[in-house]
Design a protein around this nucleic acid. Structure first.
Length: 555
RNA sequence: UGGGGCGUCGUCAAGUGGCUAAGACACAGGAUUUUGAUUCCUGCAUUCGGAGGUUCGAGUCCUCCCGCCCCAGCCA
């Protein structure tokens, strides 16, 4: 899968270094929790883990960390698998679930109890918080900390047997309530949860905590490099403690910074909030930074992978510019997308010297970047539509599109000249009457005169209608994730994140459109899997074209 | 007056004591262009959070200081 040489990073360098002194198979894993959908931040991790395995001819597992039945669902398991596949990665038969290890984990817990390294605690959650101490003060031992091994064994078996209620008891590790690292202050290993698990059903009523599961799962799977994000850095001593006490295989954990993207949020909790409060349609709303949203929007997986390669891997908490993602999308689509003509906001143009019933088939190039893409025919007639923005009655200096008395080229067709502007009683421009120059068929002038402006157009009688959805950033704030800047998510939502054009005029070749296109001069668009309310096709704008005119016009 | 991390261009990010501190995105100019797209040139850190020190030589080593992030779920 390694297309070109991907830039190196500190983790890859480390592995290369290790490989110099010993020989082993690199074995990584991507460990999502099936409690929500994957987003672009997960893509970074997926590309890292699968990419490294690929780079070193190793193995990468897909493992679901499903230790909390109250939040996890099979539908998420399915969606996650679909997303990983779509991104372009294949776990082969390396599909695992932490829940596969519940028996083993239970046995690990028994082992710790027998070593006197774990105990059943009766403290309530509130009491436990008080006993934990604070960041600057040590905690104090639970009064139940010194129960006998026999009593602990008995109590833990009874927890498993369902003899206690939720919250009544937990199993804790016996480490050090005075540690500066709060994770070492006798962390909870097992809690009682009388919930049905999406895979193990009602077999269990006690479930291991993530901290007691993750490291051992990596160990069981013989993961060589456990890559995770920065916030787990101070969990590492705890994982090391478990592995050492249990005397089992010890993977190497390496932390890297999670992805932050400006103008977007990448927190599962907040994305869920957007869905639940109906600020977006669903997890796959094209404005969402989820992989399903990006897929629906029309982002090519290749572009996302390229983006992940380009942002690099480091330990500094950084925010990547959204423009880089858009750049990667444009770069890929520029090479691959078929060019078509679509008019979003139509302005009628009648060519007064063009024969009434004549229709010409003009040759249009499908993709100037790809000589093999060929050409297609586009019908041209007396009445066409152009973009309203492409005409100005009183244009500024640098405007070189259509204006009264000015000439402009209709792409692949003729040079036309604006002779008359027709307005309605409200003074709105409703139609342009133009002449065309028959000597300029397909757009080339015979006398060598330069025509600066070239416009896209669609013939009235041949136009096909569809709904087009234009998307902008979901947030107006550059850093909506920062709660100091944005205490209330809703207030920084962009009211213009979605603009619907109900009736855009498309060239007829788009009647059976599939996949992604470049709408000439407008941007890249992709067919939505759903139909509009009126049964029309829907096109989603993936990303605009770079627009220097907009920059000039804004000055 | 706890513990763990991080600070190199507007944004990411190479750099692991020795040529003038990579590259990408962004930005600004210019050329080409039947997409104001693409492509192509050009410019864009005398300086690496700050101050000392070690060294012939420091972004890279040492000391101190400053700033930012994470941790007090029976979440992951």
């Amino acid at each position: 899968m390694s297309e070109v040489e991907t830039p190196s990073n500190f983790i890859q360098n480390k592995i290369e270094e290790e490989l110099k002194s010993s020989s082993f198979t690199v074995h990584t894993r991507f460990p999502p929790e099936p409690n929500g959908h994957l987003h672009i931040g997960h893509a970074k991790s997926i590309c890292l883990n699968f990419g490294l395995a690929d780079k070193f001819s190793g193995i990468c597992n897909l493992r679901f960390d499903d230790t909390n039945p109250s939040k996890e669902e099979t539908k998420f398991v399915k969606a996650i698998q679909e997303d990983v596949k779509w991104l372009g990665f294949d776990w082969g038969n390396q599909l695992f679930y932490a829940s596969d290890y519940f028996d083993q984990l239970f046995e690990f817990a028994i082992r710790l109890i027998k070593k006197g390294k774990a105990y059943v605690d009766d403290l309530t959650p509130e009491q436990m918080r008080e006993y934990r101490g604070t960041l600057s003060e040590p905690g104090k031992n639970s009064p139940y900390r010194d129960r006998s091994i026999e009593e602990n064994l008995d109590l833990f078996q009874k927890m498993k047997a369902g003899e206690f209620e939720e919250g009544e008891k937990v199993l804790r590790a016996k480490i050090d309530m005075g540690s500066g690292n709060l994770n070492m202050r006798d962390p909870v290993l097992y809690r009682i949860l009388k919930a049905s698990h999406h895979r193990t059903g009602d077999k269990w009523c006690i479930y291991p905590m993530y901290d007691f599961t993750h490291g051992q799962s990596d160990s069981i799977e013989k993961i060589t490099h456990s890559l995770c994000t920065l916030e787990f850095e101070d969990h590492r001593p705890l994982y090391d403690w478990f592995l050492d006490e249990l005397e089992i295989y010890h993977p190497q954990q390496i932390e890297f910074a999670r992805l932050n993207l400006n103008y977007t949020i990448l927190s599962k909790r907040k994305l869920l909030q957007l869905v639940e409060e109906r600020h977006v349609d669903n997890w796959d709303d094209p404005r969402m930074p989820t992989l399903s949203g990006m897929r629906r929007r029309g982002y090519p997986p290749e572009a996302i992978r390229e983006f992940c390669d380009r942002i690099g891997i480091s330990k500094s908490n950084a925010t990547v510019d959204f423009a880089l993602l858009e750049h990667c999308v444009r770069e890929y689509l520029n090479r691959t997308a078929t060019r078509v003509m679509v008019v979003l906001r139509p302005l009628k143009v009648v060519l007064i010297n063009y024969p009434e019933d004549q229709v010409e088939e003009m040759d249009a190039v499908n993709n100037p970047e790809d000589p093999n893409a060929g050409t297609r025919k586009m019908p041209f007639s007396r009445t066409v539509y152009i973009e309203r923005d492409d005409f100005m009655e009183d244009p500024p200096k640098k405007f070189f599109r259509l204006a009264p008395g000015r000439e402009v080229r209709l792409k692949h067709a003729y040079v036309i000249k604006c002779e008359e502007v027709i307005k309605n009683s409200d003074g709105e421009i409703v139609e342009l009457r133009c002449t065309y120059d028959p000597e300029t068929r397909s757009g080339a002038t015979q006398d060598g005169r330069k025509i600066k402006g070239t416009l896209h157009w669609v013939s009235e009688d041949h136009a096909h209608k569809a709904e087009v959805r234009l998307y902008n950033h979901l947030f107006t704030q550059e850093n909506p994730a920062d709660e100091k800047v944005c205490p209330d998510l809703k207030s920084s939502l962009n009211p213009d994140s979605l603009e619907i054009i109900e009736e855009a005029l498309l060239e007829p070749s788009l009647k059976n459109a599939k996949g992604g296109y470049q709408f000439l001069r407008l941007g890249y668009f992709s067919v939505d899997p759903q139909k509009s309310a009126s049964g029309d096709q829907i096109f989603n704008r993936v990303v605009t074209l770079r627009d220097t005119w907009a920059k000039i016009a804004n000055k």
